[in-house]
């Protein structure tokens, strides 16, 4: 009987460790339009969830004098490379508190990879092409996903427990977050309403100098 109880305990513990849920986060603005490029993430409340950065660097490319992708979410400790696929040189930099760096003018694959070792948003720019902009959101949780054009992001592999669901976007006007509970393998959908600031970017089109005076 004792052995049976022990066996039952072990089996149920293993099952609960394996049981994981998925949260589908749907980001919409107040008019109901899906919000793409938002980073949805959950922070474990009961027990901290360690992050494991990927072995290979994550790439953010430069093509046609723009960064691709526009938003990248990584965990603390991730290395990011910035391959230049243009025939034009770029000078990639950040002056954000979470990571300040610059890779002076280069073309092709830069040998430099940058370690993102603090959580928070990082704004990327090119010191030559002022209109170039992209964002890296560095997370201290392994549970995150980026919304697509349908505004949806699936955060998978969540063990049962209580979490704080938060959302980040480059134009987020006010912080959004709520507490959620994952029970067993049940999937849930969380619709989050986000208010965005206007998308104001630097004009890229060239100048026409007009005619000089004589």
């Amino acid at each position: 009987m004792r052995h049976f109880l022990l066996f039952f305990l072990v089996v149920s513990l293993t099952a609960s460790a394996r049981a994981s849920g998925t949260v589908r986060v749907v980001a919409k603005d107040p008019s109901g339009t899906p919000v793409a490029d938002a980073v949805a993430y959950v922070l474990a409340i009961d027990a901290p969830a360690p992050v494991r950065p990927p072995a290979d660097p994550v790439a953010i490319i430069q093509k046609d004098q723009e960064f691709l992708p526009y938003v990248t979410a990584v965990v603390v400790g991730t290395r990011v490379s910035f391959p230049n696929k243009d025939t034009v040189q770029h000078h990639v930099y950040s002056v954000s508190p979470a990571k300040k760096f610059e890779i002076p003018l280069y073309i092709g694959e830069s040998s430099a990879t940058i370690l993102f070792d603090h959580p928070g948003p990082v704004t990327l720019g090119c010191n030559i092409h002022d209109w170039m902009v992209a964002y890296i959101y560095v997370l201290a949780t392994p549970y995150f996903a980026k919304t697509g054009t349908d505004g949806a992001a699936d955060i998978t592999g969540l063990p049962p427990g209580r979490y704080r669901l938060e959302l980040w976007h480059p134009r987020l006007a006010a912080k959004v977050g709520r507490e959620i509970t994952i029970e067993g393998t049940a999937d849930s959908t969380q619709v989050v309403s986000v208010t965005l600031r206007p998308d104001r970017r630097i004009r890229r089109a060239p100048d026409s100098e007009g005619l000089g005076y004589k």
Binding site: R203, R204, A205, P206, D207, S208, G210, L211, Y213, K214
Partner: peptide
């Protein structure tokens, strides 16, 4: 000595092109 002043309006046509209409007084 020459003084000049001008104003122009310039719509961008895509990301690589712009059109400019300028009036300059000298």
């Amino acid at each position: 000595r020459t003084w000049s002043y001008g104003i122009s309006v310039s719509p961008a046509i895509g990301r690589h092109t712009s059109l400019t209409l300028e009036v300059k007084r000298v």
